[in-house]
Amino acid sequence: KRPMNAFMVWAQAARRKLADQYPHLHNAELSKTLGKLWRLLSESEKRPFVEEAERLRVQHKKDHPDYK
């Protein structure tokens, strides 16, 4: 399984919050909304998630050196 990218790291927590706020939204609508919200974030707001995704990528490479 591939490591999560920055969006997926962020969306993991954001999806729970959004689903709690809008329990009537279908998963497809949640995903579209999350995409729009992510694009509205500034680079500095995204930075911690980009850094975490990079950490996960490096760890994955270490754990699975033959993964392509």
Rank of each mutant, 00 (worst) to 15 (best):
K1A: 00
R2T: 11
M4Y: 05
M4F: 10
M4S: 04
N5Y: 07
F7C: 02
M8Q: 13
V9C: 14
V9Y: 12
V9G: 12
W10L: 01
A11N: 00
Q12E: 07
Q12T: 06
A13W: 03
A14K: 08
A14W: 07
R15H: 02
K17D: 07
K17R: 12
K17I: 00
K17A: 03
L18C: 02
A19R: 12
A19E: 11
A19Y: 05
A19G: 05
A19Q: 12
A19S: 07
Q21K: 14
Q21M: 08
Y22L: 15
Y22A: 11
H24T: 11
H24R: 14
H24L: 07
H24D: 08
L25V: 03
L25N: 04
L25F: 05
H26Y: 03
H26N: 08
N27S: 12
N27R: 11
E29V: 15
E29M: 14
E29S: 14
E29W: 15
L30V: 08
S31Q: 13
S31L: 02
S31D: 13
T33K: 15
T33Q: 12
L34Y: 00
L34T: 00
L34W: 04
G35S: 09
G35D: 11
K36P: 00
L37C: 11
L37A: 12
L37F: 09
L37N: 10
W38H: 01
W38K: 12
W38C: 02
W38E: 00
W38D: 01
L40C: 10
L40W: 15
L40K: 15
L40I: 04
L41M: 15
L41D: 01
L41P: 01
L41A: 02
L41N: 05
S42A: 03
S42H: 10
S42N: 05
E43V: 13
S44A: 09
S44W: 08
E45K: 14
K46L: 01
K46S: 04
R47N: 04
R47M: 08
R47E: 09
P48C: 02
F49W: 04
F49E: 14
V50F: 05
V50W: 03
V50D: 05
A53H: 03
A53T: 06
A53N: 05
E54R: 03
L56H: 06
R57D: 13
V58W: 03
Q59C: 07
Q59H: 05
Q59Y: 03
H60V: 09
K61M: 08
K61C: 05
K61Q: 09
K61R: 10
K62I: 05
K62L: 08
K62T: 10
D63C: 08
H64A: 11
Y67A: 14
Y67P: 14
Y67Q: 14
K68W: 05
K68Y: 10
K68C: 14
